[in-house]
Design a protein around this nucleic acid. Structure first.
Lengths: 205, 205
DNA sequence: AGCCAAAGTGGAACGTGTTCCTATTTTAGA
DNA sequence: TCTAAAATAGGAACACGTTCCACTTTGGCT
């Protein structure tokens, strides 16, 4: 009775090949995040990632065609985790603005608790070109999703164009603020301030 | 009578040393912009810049301690030119929003007419860390200045905190839109749209 | 004019992202 | 079980940002 799992990998969410391949991919992303967390963007060196993931350099490049792809993919994974964590928890706050601010500050606080990791991921995000558009778009969707959920906690059906536009602008401000912070040009407090002001300007009804 | 200009360089706006030094600096920035204009960020190679500016590599590094400094300094010079050009010209448009959109679209159009240059300068701007804070801040001031002038063409005295906050948010959106565009993730039309929507959201009185 | 410190030259050298190549191992299918 | 294809290992090689060094030129001072 050889139950040698007859090729059955079709259950994978995104069809990422065999179990061994999924495992390698995970090891690589884990190593990336460890290194980023310790030393930021510069510490994520391809040879170091390969070593720590116990994978050859060529294999690393087979999975992720560049350092930027690697880091943006890591960002995507982290962001999915964050979004999932936010999903079930009810958003606190009376007004729309309060709820949005609450969600954003929560997320920002989470990122600021690991500055090096945030620096690495944000830098990669800002440097990414068209070849990473898919991953970037995915992250953008997650952010929009988090924001609109904060705006309408009890599952609205109708998101107006304006709602989406507002979410987008807030996302832009958030990103700028984050860049200012990771590059050491603004403090954590200023970053929070910047976001709060923008949200209040945009959601004053 | 030897009128050999007795050390008289104290008239320089920012005290940038001797005429020879100012000349070298200019040659370097010119070379940078030429190369960026032709091939974007990747084409601005330090050896190439040094060659074209007719300067040794070490000298280039004496003037600009990194490629990022070099490009951000080039951006600063270009932006000063742009800002000066906008200064005298009256801003067209009835409403505040119209005027701001007009100024931003004009500037954006200018940048989009030289995509490679814009890509190089924007990339550098986004990658700049704290050591370039001075130059970055200068560019931010110029942008704010352009925006508030568009908001109040007839020289208001009182810029409220809200005015400045709005200008800042618009600047953030502009930057995000620009990054999306230079990295090939959004089209020129989408970029304009994105800015217009944000401005209308923020200036709807 | 002659001297000295600062600035510039020319180029070697190093680190890290990326590419490439060959040998070996794993995997899928007959 | 056997075999061909795909994946991986291991590492050399290359490109470009950056650093460094020995030497030369420049410019201000006496």
């Amino acid at each position: 009775m050889g139950d040698r799992v007859s090729t059955a990998n079709s259950l994978a969410v995104d069809d990422l090949g065999s179990a061994a391949q999924r495992d390698r991919r995970k090891r690589i992303l884990d190593a990336t995040i460890q290194l980023a967390s310790q030393g930021g963007f510069d510490a994520v060196q391809m040879r170091a990632v390969a070593d720590r993931a116990d994978v050859a350099l060529g294999t690393l490049y087979r999975y992720f065609p560049s350092k930027i792809h690697l880091l943006v993919s890591a960002l995507q994974r982290e962001f999915e985790r964050t979004e999932a964590a936010t999903r079930d928890r009810p958003v606190e706050g009376e007004t729309t603005a309060d709820r949005v601010i609450s969600v954003l500050k929560g997320t920002t606080r989470g990122m600021q608790s690991d500055p090096q990791l945030t620096e690495a991921l944000t830098r990669a995000f800002m440097f990414a070109d068209a070849s990473v558009a898919a991953e970037i778009h995915q992250v953008g969707m997650l952010l929009t999703s988090m924001l609109t959920r904060a705006m309408y906690p009890e599952g609205h059906d109708e998101l107006t164009e304006e709602d989406v536009a507002i979410a987008r602008v807030i996302g832009d401000v958030w990103l700028s603020a984050l860049v200012g912070w990771v590059t050491g040009r603004t403090s954590a407090a200023e970053t929070g301030q910047q976001i709060e002001v923008a949200v209040k300007l945009l959601l004053r009804d």
